[in-house]
């Protein structure tokens, strides 16, 4: 059995610079009680399921290697101020906002700073807290010969109930993304319009 400490890489996307994060999350091992991070109360305490149309306060996405590199679920929905936690289940990946400062085109709202986990390996975690409504697209930038992006490892976080008009994530043409990155992102666009456009 693997003895892996869950490490967290944290990011908070705040609408204003004043929203400082209070402190690091307690590391489960360091806290000495051996509790798994998944057992922390906030996960189950509040909000919806995190599926599109049912925003949660906190939602977990697993980053898997099999059958192919991908984010599961690919789309999550959180309330403003909500947190998304990515848990790495196989080998090495990244959780990187689509933004010229981090990787690729801008597919996150204007004026927020892009997040980037860097390479995170199995047994480690990455978290982002999203303060501002909008659509945040991200990608696993890991590349061996082909890229995880080209294999379809792209994801989307919907925060709140944003006006879909003017969202960079929806204005950008997915045809610029490679191979299955484009295919999967088009599916996300269809799902997003279907779920959020009727009000």
């Amino acid at each position: 059995m693997k003895h892996l400490t869950r490490r967290r890489v944290l990011a908070s996307a705040a609408a204003t610079g004043a929203a400082a994060v209070a402190g690091c999350l307690e590391d489960s091992d360091a806290s000495g009680d051996g509790a798994d991070a998944n057992d922390e109360p906030p996960d189950e305490a509040t909000g919806g399921s995190g599926a599109l149309g049912d925003p949660a306060e906190t939602v977990t996405v697993t980053v898997v290697m099999r059958p192919s590199p991908q984010f599961d679920p690919g789309i999550v929905h959180v309330e403003p101020g909500g947190t998304v936690r990515w848990e790495i289940e196989g080998l090495r990946h990244s959780v990187t906002a689509y933004h010229p400062e981090t990787y690729g085109p801008q597919r996150i709202p204007d004026g927020v700073e892009p997040f980037d986990s860097g390479t995170v390996r199995e047994g480690h975690e990455f978290e982002v807290t999203f303060e501002e409504e909008g659509i945040y697209d991200y990608v696993d930038t890991r590349r061996l010969c082909g890229s995880h992006e080209a294999l379809g490892a792209v994801g989307r976080v919907v925060v709140g109930w944003p006006d879909l008009e003017g969202q960079p994530a929806l204005e950008h043409d997915p045809a610029e993304l490679p191979s299955r990155g484009e295919t999967v992102m088009r599916e996300y666009n269809d799902e997003t319009w279907a779920a959020l456009n009727d009000d």
Partner: peptide
């Protein structure tokens, strides 16, 4: 690096120091 914390805001103000220190504390 065990973990790092990124606070992202429209103003660009960062609040990183405490948590980077947290690595050492951990």
């Amino acid at each position: 690096r065990r973990r790092f914390l990124q606070t992202v805001g429209a103003t660009g103000a960062l609040a990183l120091a405490g948590c980077l220190e947290g690595d050492t504390a951990e």
